[in-house]
């Protein structure tokens, strides 16, 4: 579904992504973890080309997303099929919750207004916010905003969803409600890549965990192996640092 082939990225002299070769299978849930600055967010942002890469190939659902030959139209169509959830929600503050969700299907995919609103209402019910349709983002809590952001991404009916630290900007008591929605998606077989520090979520929901450090994927393993028998010394140190807290 998402295949990285020798992906390299540099920020000036800094090698941000170092020869990343990996694959996320259809329906698989991959959690990216690692110390800050290890390249997790950069990696996930290359998948819908919010970040450019220097070399290598990244194929999403059969589409070479970084190909020079892509037209803007092709790239936008592909982007619309990859759900992206940001750490800072990035809801559109000038639109109501319902409009936030219904706007892009209407404007990008040409879905009819009534249909888009019906879908949006259904998605709001699904994330437990049916009563907030007419509210504006600023009137919602962080957890509610992030759930709307997930619904907004889902409205484009993406075959894959990317989450970039979706709970890092939330108060602790709101983390659970967002993770619950994500867990629901995983249970339905959504292909997901998720950068998170929520190790409990990683352990329960992930099919595989990619551990990153200094722009490389050092270890890719099922949660049981990752937490039970980490192979790489850097992973071992990372996990023991986690436990120390």
């Amino acid at each position: 579904m998402i295949r990285f082939d020798n992906v390299n990225k540099w920020y000036g002299d800094y090698h941000a992504l170092n020869d990343i070769t990996a694959e996320v299978a259809q329906g698989e849930v991959v959690v990216l973890c690692g110390p800050s600055g290890s390249g997790k967010s950069t990696l996930i942002r290359t998948v819908n080309r919010l970040e450019e890469i220097r070399s290598g190939q990244l194929v999403v659902d059969g589409f070479d997303i970084h190909a020079k030959s892509n037209t803007a139209r092709e790239l936008n169509r592909m982007r619309s099929r990859i759900g992206f959830v940001f750490q800072s929600f990035n809801l559109f503050p000038h639109l109501s919750v319902l409009e936030n969700i219904a706007m892009s299907p209407m404007r990008v995919r040409g879905v009819k207004r009534e249909e888009a609103r019906a879908t949006a209402t259904r998605l709001l019910e699904r994330v437990g916010l049916a009563n907030k349709a007419g509210s504006y983002p600023a009137q919602l809590s962080g957890g509610q905003q992030q759930r709307v952001a997930i619904a907004r991404a889902l409205a484009m009916e993406p075959p894959a969803m990317l989450f970039d630290e979706p709970t890092s900007a939330l108060d602790p008591e709101m983390v659970g409600e967002v993770l619950a929605v994500m867990r629901g998606l995983a249970d339905e077989g959504m292909t997901m890549m998720c950068v998170t520090h929520e190790m409990g979520f990683a352990r329960e929901v992930a099919d595989r965990i990619w551990f990153m450090d200094a722009g490389r994927i050092l270890e890719a393993a099922a949660p049981a192996d990752f937490f039970g028998a980490p192979k790489h010394p850097r992973t071992q140190r990372f996990l023991s640092d986690l436990r120390a807290h």
Binding site: I82, F84, V108, A153, M156
Partner: peptide, 18 residues
């Protein structure tokens, strides 16, 4: 405007005009 607004629009598939 926060950079995230443009990024969110882009990730939903909006082109420059949209």
């Amino acid at each position: 405007l926060p950079k995230g607004q443009g990024e969110a629009a882009r990730s939903l598939g909006h082109g420059y005009v949209g």
